[in-house]
Simulated assay, not measured.
Amino acid sequence: MRNQRAVIAALSLAAAGAVLASVTLFGSTADDEGAPHVTVVPPTRTRAASPASPTRSGWQVVDDTEAGLSYEVPPNWALAPDTETLESSSGTVLTHLADFGTYLCQGAEYGRAFTGSGRVDGDPAEVATEVAAAIAADQYSDGTQTAAVTLSRPTPVVRDGARGTVIRADAEVKAGEVADSCASTRGVVTVVALATPVGTAVMVVGADTDDRGPTVPIADAGELRGITDSVRPRG
Rank of each mutant, 00 (worst) to 15 (best):
R5N: 14
V7F: 01
A10V: 10
A14Q: 08
A15V: 01
A16T: 06
A16N: 03
G17F: 07
A18E: 06
L20W: 07
A21W: 10
S22Q: 12
G27N: 07
G27Q: 06
T29N: 05
A35Q: 12
P36I: 07
V40P: 01
P43Q: 11
R47N: 09
A52N: 10
P54I: 09
S57M: 06
G58D: 13
G58A: 12
W59C: 13
V62C: 07
V62G: 03
D63R: 12
D64N: 14
A67D: 08
Y71F: 15
P74A: 15
P75V: 14
W77P: 10
A78N: 09
L79K: 07
P81T: 15
T83S: 13
T85H: 09
T85S: 13
E87H: 01
E87C: 01
T92P: 03
L94V: 03
T95M: 05
H96E: 13
A98V: 06
D99G: 02
G101F: 03
T102L: 01
Y103R: 02
L104M: 06
C105G: 11
A108M: 02
E109C: 06
G111F: 10
G111L: 12
F114K: 00
G118R: 07
V120W: 01
V120F: 02
D121H: 05
D123K: 02
D123V: 00
D123M: 00
D123Y: 00
P124S: 02
A125W: 00
E126H: 02
A128T: 09
T129H: 01
A133H: 08
A134C: 05
A137H: 04
Q139S: 13
Q139A: 14
Y140W: 15
D142T: 14
A148Y: 00
T150E: 14
T150M: 06
T150G: 00
L151H: 02
P154C: 02
P154F: 03
V157K: 01
R159F: 04
G161V: 10
R163I: 01
R163T: 15
G164S: 11
T165G: 05
R168T: 15
R168Q: 10
D170L: 07
E172Y: 03
V178E: 12
R186L: 04
G187V: 08
G187F: 03
T190I: 13
L194N: 02
T196Q: 10
P197G: 05
V198M: 07
V198S: 15
G199D: 12
T200E: 07
V202M: 13
M203K: 02
V204C: 04
V204Q: 11
V204E: 12
V204F: 04
V205Y: 10
G206C: 09
D208K: 04
T209F: 05
D210W: 06
D211M: 05
D211R: 11
V216W: 05
P217W: 07
I218N: 09
I218R: 13
I218V: 15
A219E: 12
A221H: 06
R225K: 07
D229L: 05
S230F: 11
R232H: 14
P233D: 11
P233Y: 12
